[in-house]
Every structure is written in structure tokens, then in C-alpha cells.
């Protein structure tokens, strides 16, 4: 299974690199779709169907909206010129990436292998959720009962996003 996930991740990286360098924006958007749909397969392999449903629907709607936007505007990529400032930016990015990667390697060395939990909290959630919440689906039990605050925060984020969109995309003021 780790081999399959590695192959899919390599596929995702290729799609992301192509999306950056494509000269046609429509093909860049579709290459971005490769990343999203490969993530769906990853979620299914890791036995997370809840996340896979959300990811596949959101990816489809986002892709439709992006394709509609691209078809309405230009399909050509606007390239900037590569001067000294761009070189400095690229060098800084490479240095920061190297430092972050080193810290990630140092921090993840003492952790348990992938897929094994080290937290005592997880055992209590997995074993006692059906009795405590009455919900057979463990994910809903955690989302709406144990972690109700988090769900309230997510819903509030959505409301705030809608408020922002409605504020920005208004041409005429209300009388």
C-alpha cells in the first residue's frame, strides 16, 4: 500500500509541476485537477471515505468554476522577465526549503512509524465513542460531539468567507 501511495504522490508532484509551467492556463487548471483527484485515491487507500467524498465533490465544483473562469478570460500565461530580483527570490526559497526540510527530518525522527498512534486520547475516542455519543459513524461522533467547538469554527469560517466574497464582489451600493 505504501508503494501505491508513493506512486500516486509522484504523479501528483508531476501534475503540480506541469500546472506551474504550462503555457496554456486551461491545461494548467486540468493538471491541477490531477492533484485533487489523486488525493481522493490516496484517501480511499488510507481508509478515509468521509474525506474522499468531500474531496471529490469539492474538487469537481472547483474545477468547473475554474474552467468557466478560464474560458471567459484569457488562456495565455503572462510571463514576467527573469532579472536579478527573481534570482534572489529563488535562492532565498531554496535556502528556506532546505532549512525547513532539515527541521522536519529532525522532528519526525523520534515519532512512531506511520499509522501507529502514540496518543492515549485516540484509544479513548476509538473504543468509547459508540457508547458515549450513540453514533455508529466514528467520524461524526468526533466531529459533532467531542470536537463540537472545531465544527462551530469551521462553519464560522464558511460564513466569514461568504461575507468577504459578497463584500468584494459588489459594484453598486445598496440604497
Amino acid at each position: 500500500m505504501e508503494l501505491a501511495i508513493s506512486v500516486i504522490v509522484i504523479f501528483m508532484i508531476l501534475g503540480a509541476i506541469y500546472a506551474i509551467h504550462a503555457s496554456d492556463i486551461l491545461s494548467a487548471v486540468i493538471a491541477g485537477g490531477i492533484v485533487g483527484y489523486s488525493l481522493v485515491i490516496c484517501f480511499l487507500l488510507l481508509k478515509a471515505p468521509d474525506l474522499a467524498i468531500v474531496q471529490i465533490v469539492v474538487e469537481t465544483i472547483t474545477l468547473i468554476i475554474m474552467v468557466a473562469v478560464v474560458l471567459d478570460s484569457s488562456r495565455k500565461e503572462a510571463y514576467g522577465k527573469f532579472d536579478t530580483q527573481a534570482w534572489v527570490t529563488a535562492a532565498t526559497a531554496v535556502v528556506i526549503l532546505a532549512i525547513l526540510f532539515w527541521f522536519l527530518k529532525e522532528a519526525s525522527a523520534p515519532l512512531a512509524p506511520f499509522g501507529e498512534n502514540t496518543m492515549r486520547m485516540a484509544d479513548a475516542y476509538v473504543n468509547g465513542a459508540v457508547d458515549k455519543t450513540g453514533s455508529v459513524n466514528l467520524v461524526t461522533g468526533v466531529l459533532f460531539d467531542f470536537r463540537g467547538y472545531d465544527t462551530l469554527g469551521e462553519a464560522t469560517v464558511l460564513v466569514t468567507a461568504v461575507l468577504g466574497v459578497l463584500t468584494i464582489l459588489r459594484i453598486r451600493g445598496k440604497k
Binding site: 471515505p49 468521509d50 467524498i53 468531500v54 465533490v57 469539492v58 469537481t60 465544483i61 450513540g134 453514533s135 455508529v136 459513524n137 467520524v139 461524526t140 461522533g141 466531529l143 469551521e154
Partner: peptide, 17 residues
């Protein structure tokens, strides 16, 4: 949502779709 995979977030996006 409390019986099978899915729930408010996934179903809401499908309805909007």
C-alpha cells in the same frame, strides 16, 4: 451522517452541486 460515511459537510456540497 451518523450511520454511514459522509455528513453535513459532504452532503451540503452535493446539494449545492
Amino acid at each position: 451522517g451518523h450511520l454511514t460515511p459522509g455528513g453535513g459537510f459532504a452532503g451540503g456540497v452535493i446539494v449545492a452541486g
